[in-house]
Computed example of a mutant assay.
Amino acid sequence: MGKREHCRTSVLFFPTFVNRFGCGKAQCTGVPSFRIGHAGFLDRLVWPDLNRRLSVAKETIVNRSNRAGQIAELRKVVMWLYDKGRYHDALPGAVQLVDWSRDSHGSSYPELADSINILAMTYHALGQYDAAEPLHVEALELRRRCNGERSCAVAMSMNNLAALHFDCGKFGKSEELYLRSLEIDRNAQTLHNLGVLYHAMGRFAEAKPLFHEALEIRHEAPGENSSSFALTLNCLAALYFRMSDYAQAESLWRRALKIRGRVSGRRHPDYARTLNNLGAVYYILGELARAERFFMRALRIRRQVFGDIHGECAQTLDNLGSVSRAKGRFKKAL
C-alpha cells in the first residue's frame, strides 16, 4: 500500500533524559472503524455533554435492550476519556465494554476485537503490561479470524503488540512485528514506531528517514496542526538530541509543544512529555534554572494524570534530582 495512514494513531510516552533519553513509547493504534487522532480514538471530538453521555452508558447496566447501541455509546465515552489522557477514568468503562461485547457478540465478531484492543491499550497506557499483553494477543488472533491475515486490522494489532514488546525491552520481537505490519500497510503510525525502536537501539541512520517519511504522510493528513504530527516531531527532536544537535532538538520540541498545547491542552500527558524533553535540552546546555522549571511543570501534570506512583513521575523526579545535584543541592537530590 502507498503512503496513506489507514490505521491512525493513538498513544505514546516519552521517557526521561540522560541514559534513558529517547523518543519514548511507541504508539498503539485504535479501532479501524473510527478516525483516530494521536492520543486516542476520536478525531478531536469535544462533547460538552459528557456527563449526560456517561449517564446514558451507565443506564445499560440495568437496561439490556438495544445492547449494540449501548455498547457503541460506552465505547465513545471510553475513547473520549482515553483521548484526553484520563486513563484511570477510562479503565472501568473499558473493562465493562469487553464484558458486554463478549456477552453480545460471542467470540468471532470484529467488534469484540475492537473492544479488547481498547482495554489492552488502556492497560498499556497505565503501564500494566502483564494485563495488556494477553489482550493484545487475543485481539490479534480475533482479527486474523474475522478480517484475514493481510487486513489493516491485523496490521494494527501487530503494531500494538510490537509497541508493548518495545516497552518491555523485547526489541527483537518488536522489530519483527513492525516489519510484518509494514508489509501489510505502510502507514505513518508504524513507520513512526519503527523509528522509535531503531532510535532506542542506537540505529540512528535507520531511524531518521522513517521519522521523515512519517512526517511527510502526516503533513498531508491529518495535517501539521495535529497531535500525531506533533508526536513525530517530538521523536525526531529526540533523535537530534541523541546526535548532540541541541539547537535542532530545541526548535522541534518547541514546535511540538505549541501544537500539543493547542490540540491536546496544557494538562495532557503529551504536553508534559514535551516539557520534560525541553527540560532535558536546557539541562544539557547548563541552563539549570530553566531546566528545573520545565521539569516541575511536567511533574505537576504527570501527578495529576497518573498519580504519584508511576514511571513517568519517577523519571521526572529523577531529572529534578539531577538538576539539584548539578546545583550542589545534594540533600534535595536525595
Rank of each mutant, 00 (worst) to 15 (best):
Arg4Thr: 12
Cys7Pro: 09
Thr9Met: 15
Leu12Lys: 13
Ala26Ser: 13
Asp43Lys: 12
Trp47Tyr: 14
Ile61Asn: 08
Val62Ala: 15
Val62Gln: 12
Ile71Val: 08
Val77Pro: 08
Tyr82Asp: 11
Tyr82Val: 11
Gly85Pro: 02
Tyr87Ala: 02
Ala90His: 00
Gly93Tyr: 08
Ala94Cys: 11
Leu97Pro: 02
Glu111Asn: 09
Glu111Lys: 10
Ala113Glu: 10
Asp130Trp: 04
Ala131Pro: 00
Leu135Asp: 07
Ala139Glu: 03
Arg145Tyr: 02
Glu149Ile: 08
Ser151Gln: 02
Met156Gln: 12
Met156Gly: 14
Asn159Met: 09
Asn159Glu: 11
Leu161Gln: 02
Ala162Gln: 04
Ala162Leu: 07
Gly169Met: 11
Gly169Asp: 03
Ser174Ile: 02
Tyr178Arg: 04
Ala188Tyr: 01
Leu191Phe: 02
Ala200Val: 09
Glu206Gln: 15
Ala207Ile: 03
Ala207His: 01
Ser226Asn: 07
Ser227Cys: 03
Ser227Phe: 00
Ser228Gln: 03
Phe229Gly: 02
Leu236Asp: 00
Tyr240Ile: 02
Tyr240Arg: 06
Tyr246Arg: 05
Ile259Trp: 01
Ile259Leu: 12
Arg260Gly: 00
Asn277Ile: 05
Gly279Met: 08
Tyr283Asn: 09
Ile284Gln: 15
Ala289Thr: 10
Glu292Asp: 10
Ile301Trp: 09
Arg302Ser: 05
Gln304Tyr: 06
Ser324Arg: 14
